[in-house]
Design a protein around this nucleic acid. Sequence first.
DNA 1: CCCTCCATGTAAGTCGTTACATGATTGT
DNA 2: ACAATCATGTAACGACTTACATGGAGGG
Lengths: 176, 176
Amino acid sequence: MSLRHALLGLLADGPASGYDLLGTFRTSLENVWPATQSQIYTDLTKLDAAGLIRIAAEGPRGRKTYEITDEGRAELRHWLLETAPEGYRRNDILLRVFLLGAVEPEEARGFLRTRAHSATTRLAALRSFDESMDWGGDPLSVYGRLTLEWGKRFMAMQAEWAEWAEKEVAALEATR
Amino acid sequence: MSLRHALLGLLADGPASGYDLLGTFRTSLENVWPATQSQIYTDLTKLDAAGLIRIAAEGPRGRKTYEITDEGRAELRHWLLETAPEGYRRNDILLRVFLLGAVEPEEARGFLRTRAHSATTRLAALRSFDESMDWGGDPLSVYGRLTLEWGKRFMAMQAEWAEWAEKEVAALEATR
DNA sequence: CCCTCCATGTAAGTCGTTACATGATTGT
DNA sequence: ACAATCATGTAACGACTTACATGGAGGG
């Protein structure tokens, strides 16, 4: 259901075509809510049929520019403020950790080391992206910055946790 | 694909029936990899057909106890150590934050306050769960403790971030 | 002229959820 | 007896992915 809401949210900021929206998903939303070209086009058609968006203009190469309707704005508002987010839910790293008893402790430690390393690398990438951006005062920039900050804090947390966890496994290994 | 691996991982620890596994998903794996009864039974059938598990015994009420096969262990090992985890990926809270420009700053702050509050509540629940458990030395306990610790750190991070973010929005509101 | 980018659409298949459907065993 | 719990299965539907398919427009 959420991709439809993501599309509504982006269109609330101004009219755009499926192609334009695809670009936004590939850049800004890649790490928050990935979507494929195929899904974007089918959901735009459905939102149009449901009356939540409408075709504002048609351009060259069959381009269709969509805009949000009043009904769409109402639905977006409802979803944003009156529905409970799921939050985290389903984490394939933690699932692996939970099942790590199936391999040797030394291998488990290797897994955790790799996690620490990859979180550190990602953190560095997010930091340099943050510094390269010149954040404007427009809504998408402001709230985009908040999500980026979340990403940085998340990666820092993950790296520290993985290092701690590796030591825990090492300590356990030593007592046997 | 991962539910199949979760089932393999649990069966690597010892034989169990679909019903037994359902219990584990409802308790230990609820916040890591939720699964429904329906999905567990269909995937057990598929794993059996693929030769990764087999029926070890049949009991009363049609109970089937499954056990992992050597092929299953090999597949589990491969998935655990040689495939790249996806990690975070898709967060409906962050998606909402990214789109928060569609509502009034005061409403956005309310959203963030609610996030902070709910993360704090969840953190408290995890803490008391942790204290109520007497963690044994068996593999599932050891690695289960590591995932719980992750949950605590995650909730603490989320609460702090949400409080920080609310202030950022407030500061922005003041400059207009 | 050709390559790149713009631009949209559909089909097949997997994964997951909700709901329906059934029945045996055990403890009180 | 009857309620709770044990125990499994299937059907329909929604969300998402991968792959296929097509064609126009603009720049060098």
